[in-house]
Amino acid sequence: MIGLISVIVLFNFIAFKTNKRLTGNQILHIWLITIALQSNFDVFIDLKYHGYWYFTEGADWKGILVHTVLLPPVNMMFLNWYPFKRTIIKKISYLIFWVIAILLYEMMTLLPEPWGYFHYGWWNLWHSAVLDPFLLLIILGYYKWVCKIEEKALSRKK
Rank of each mutant, 00 (worst) to 15 (best):
N19H: 08
K20N: 05
L22Y: 05
L22C: 11
L22N: 04
L22S: 04
G24H: 01
N25W: 00
Q26Y: 03
I27K: 15
I27T: 13
L28D: 01
H29R: 11
I30C: 04
I30R: 07
W31I: 02
W31E: 03
I33V: 06
T34F: 01
I35V: 15
A36S: 09
L37E: 03
Q38K: 01
Q38Y: 01
S39G: 11
S39M: 10
S39H: 00
S39Q: 01
S39L: 11
N40T: 06
F41L: 14
D42Y: 03
F44D: 00
D46K: 06
K48L: 09
K48D: 05
K48T: 08
Y49V: 01
Y49L: 11
W53G: 10
Y54N: 02
Y54K: 00
Y54H: 09
F55I: 15
T56S: 14
E57Y: 03
G58D: 14
A59H: 10
D60P: 02
K62R: 02
K62P: 00
G63W: 08
G63M: 05
I64N: 03
L65A: 15
T68Y: 06
T68D: 05
T68H: 04
V69I: 15
V69L: 14
V69P: 05
L70D: 00
P73K: 08
P73S: 08
V74K: 01
V74S: 06
N75I: 01
M76E: 07
M76Y: 15
M76S: 08
M76K: 05
M77T: 07
M77E: 02
F78M: 14
N80K: 03
W81A: 12
Y82I: 06
P83V: 07
P83Y: 06
F84W: 12
F84D: 12
F84L: 08
R86D: 10
R86W: 02
T87K: 09
T87E: 08
I88K: 15
I88R: 10
I89G: 04
I89T: 14
I89A: 14
K91M: 11
K91D: 14
I92E: 00
Y94Q: 10
Y94A: 05
L95N: 13
L95W: 04
L95G: 05
I96G: 02
F97I: 04
W98Y: 04
V99F: 09
I100Y: 01
A101R: 04
I102H: 06
L104Y: 08
Y105N: 08
M107F: 10
M108N: 13
T109D: 01
L110A: 06
L111C: 03
P112N: 13
P114H: 09
Y117D: 08
Y120S: 09
Y120D: 06
G121I: 04
G121D: 08
N124A: 07
L125H: 10
L125N: 10
L125S: 15
L125A: 11
